[in-house]
Design a protein around this nucleic acid. Structure first.
Lengths: 341, 341
DNA sequence: CTGAAAGCGCTTACAG
DNA sequence: CTGAAAGCGCTTACAG
């Protein structure tokens, strides 16, 4: 079968006996077209199965109707993380309402984000961009600000006084409350495993953790602080290390449920009991958190809402030039067996 | 800050003192440009931070360099499923190698797939399309075939004699082996929960299940066959129903780990022991399968490989007009406590 | 090896 | 309310 030649506005115009301008105007819902011609043209479009060429349209109006999603190059861990999937779901929901298409970045190598971002923007492939995470001194953010391109960020930045649109949880507060909770059940030596140190979220959570400690006059011991990627191995590895610390820490806060599972496994292998010997709490409240043999206390960050709001905000940034709006999404702490008093 | 005006090939041409045609030719790596002018133009592009406008280019050459991913409207369950994320990961990996961008469908309502598909194709937004699943009598597939548009399918179709590019596991064989395994540990009344009946994968798995039963002279009882979506609730609901069947089935095969968890929970609530009273096996081998309190026997379908190969195949379909290639991805069965003899 | 010109399929200011 | 024409930023056959 030969590929059907594309049907153009010209074909429609000819069939309808009007000019191509008129066809264009009914496409864009221009109000000064008489109802009768509109109807006629519409019928012809239907009849021919016409669909306007998006590239030509974008070229002419300088809008694409699509937004780019920049996934961090650490995709490996990122992707297997339910947080990611949930945010995308939220983005899709909102995108579908506002009728934008979604262009996914395909960066697989570290530091490629900026390259992809520029390709999207300079190539006029997108009207706006969602950043799925933020690093400290993020070059993508720098770039977006420098060209004043519409974007929204899932996460936060350090300096609040910028023109950045962002949607995030109060990660400092969440970590604070989580730490408080563990202190309240009587724990005093609380270790922490955060994500990569150059992620803003890691910084924020460390802040909250330290604040809670100092409020309870617990000395912050930097030997109890660890950083790694969001996977099982990280948890396993550090838990082994932690088990060698004398005296054994009696509490542990980790950045993600997956990391927590790794840690739990390591402790179990070593005959260390949870929560008796060491209480564990984590973030993201994935299905795993409830279902694993020792159900995990975990912070539900409401990832879907993060995604949805990020997309809504982006639309506002594109269409209404909104800049600098900060949206805080509430979280909830689910207390389970792993931090039973 | 004002938005920088877009830099065009014209600007580069002027700066380099050549014609716009020449600039265009160095962009597309046309070999009949002298090395010296190529260098000169390249330098000017660099200097201006020039990046060709993708829309203009696509319009002229009738290629977009992007492929569409059609997610089923059942996204709700689909998305939370690790299978989905893993396939996307595979797709991204391959896409990044072959330098295609990825356009995500944002259909949220049932039956919207075809509409989105047509929008992508007729609007010239994509060069090819990946279908993430296949229904029986799939209207998207019908359409794609009717216009001979390049696509590849993760999954299978019923009639094998088509010009469809597909990559899939041998789901019939997998279900067969899984059923055999459960029979081998002495079970004789084996129930099954499949996904939606109008998914091809459900059909295939039922086939394998029936084949295994009949080989062991076990009568296929259609009262032991259930169908539902890939979520916990489905498992919970049907497990309750199953628990009322006299005599109680002693084996159960389900379509996904999540469904299995739901079922396990229901059985536990009812004091039914796994695997003693009823053995359970499922598909997808998610992290959950290993970590849940009764570790689950599960089929690892190698979702990442499915995605990667689907993308590779699509590139072949686009660039080399490949049609009708069928790729089978191996699976592995992980036997765990839930089917201990 | 390089340039002038026509064309890809739309939109929109201008004129009527 | 509608049409003719110029323009969006590229590519490519044609001519040299």
């Amino acid at each position: 079968m030969k590929k059907a030649k594309q049907i153009t506005a010209n074909d429609v115009a000819r069939l309808a006996g009007v000019s191509i301008s008129t066809v264009s105007r009914v496409i864009s819902n221009n109000p000064k077209i008489s109802k009768s011609t509109r109807m006629k043209v519409l019928k012809c479009m239907e009849e021919l199965g016409y669909y306007p060429n998006a590239n030509a349209r974008s070229l002419a109006i300088k809008k694409t109707g699509t937004v780019g999603i920049i996934i961090p190059a650490t995709s490996e861990d990122y992707f297997s993380n339910p947080f990611f999937t949930e945010s995308i779901r939220g983005i899709i929901k909102s995108a579908s309402n506002s009728d934008y298409d979604l262009l996914l970045s395909t960066n697989t190598e570290k530091g490629e984000e900026l390259k992809i971002l520029q390709k999207f923007i300079k190539g006029s492939k997108v009207d706006g961009v969602i950043l799925m995470t933020s690093k400290i001194e993020d070059e993508c953010i720098q770039y977006l600000l420098s060209v004043d391109f519409p974007f929204s960020l899932i996460g936060s930045t350090q300096d609040e006084n910028q023109k950045i649109n962002q949607v995030d949880n109060d990660n400092c507060l969440a970590a604070y409350e989580l730490t408080k909770h563990i202190i309240r059940i009587g724990r005093k030596r609380i270790a922490m495993i955060v994500g990569d140190f150059n992620l803003v979220v890691s910084k924020k959570r460390m802040e909250g953790y330290k604040k809670a400690l100092s409020e309870s006059d617990i000395y912050f011991d930097k030997n109890l602080l660890f950083s790694g990627s969001f996977d099982e191995k990280t948890g396993y590895k550090y838990a082994k290390q932690i088990s060698n610390i004398k005296p054994l820490p009696d509490g542990l806060i980790v950045a993600d449920d997956l990391v927590a599972f790794g840690a739990v496994k390591a402790f179990q292998d070593l005959g260390i009991n949870i929560p008796e010997d060491i209480a564990i709490a984590s973030f993201n409240n994935s299905i795993l958190a409830k279902h694993v043999d020792v159900p995990l206390t975990s912070v539900d960050i409401n990832a879907m809402e993060l995604g949805r709001e990020a997309m809504n905000l982006l639309v506002d940034a594109i269409e209404n030039k909104v800049r600098g709006r900060k949206i805080v999404i509430p979280y909830s702490i689910y207390k389970r067996e792993s931090t039973q008093g």
